Simulated scan of single mutants.
Amino acid sequence: MKKTVLMTTLLALPLALSACDKSTEAPKADAAADTMGDMAMPAEAKMAKGSGTVAAIDAAAGKITLNHGPIAELEWPAMKMGFGVKPSELEGIVVGDTVSFEMKWDGKTGEITNITRADR
């Protein structure tokens, strides 16, 4: 009888310990540090339109940062956010410009597909 209990315990112990291993779980994001935590994230690419002010441009890296208003198609609030953009789309756009833009969102990254200054 003691032998059966000992064997059962020895077999169950590794299973019980492996259930306690949390190293395989993804870390939970800090909601205060992640301004996008409460936003809807579509599974497939979605097109959206918005407007805002240009905060930064890095044409060589193909990046633009916008302080944009709410984006209804993605259920996003107003925020400051960086996007990918083709350098050709940035012609005539400078920091401080008020712009209207169209973008593609794949659930992780956004790419500006068309951007125009608001005074045009």
Rank of each mutant, 00 (worst) to 15 (best):
N67V: 07
N67G: 06
K22Y: 00
K80W: 07
T24D: 10
R117S: 13
M47Y: 13
P14M: 10
K22E: 00
L11C: 11
D97N: 14
A118Q: 09
A40R: 06
A55M: 11
C20F: 06
A60P: 01
W105Q: 00
I57D: 04
E102D: 11
L10I: 14
V99I: 10
M103N: 02
I115M: 09
W76T: 02
W105S: 03
T98S: 12
A78Q: 09
I71W: 04
T24K: 10
G50S: 06
A29R: 13
A118M: 05
V5E: 11
E75V: 07
M103H: 00
S23T: 06
K2L: 15
D30C: 05
A31F: 07
A32G: 15
M1W: 12
P87N: 15
L11K: 09
L90C: 09
P27C: 03
K108N: 14
V94L: 07
K22R: 10
T35C: 12
E73D: 11
G84E: 12
I112Y: 01
S88C: 00
E44A: 12
D106I: 04
D34Q: 09
A19G: 11
M79F: 05
K2I: 14
V54C: 03
K86S: 13
V94S: 14
M36S: 15
K2D: 12
K46Y: 07
D34Y: 08
P14H: 12
M7N: 13
A56V: 04
I57E: 01
A40Q: 04
D106K: 01
M39R: 12
K28V: 11
A16L: 11
W76A: 02
A45V: 09
V99E: 01
P27Q: 07
A29K: 11
L13W: 02
S100D: 15
D106S: 04
E75P: 05
G62S: 04
D30W: 01
V95N: 05
A43K: 14
E75N: 14
F83I: 02
T35K: 13
P87K: 15
K80D: 12
C20Y: 05
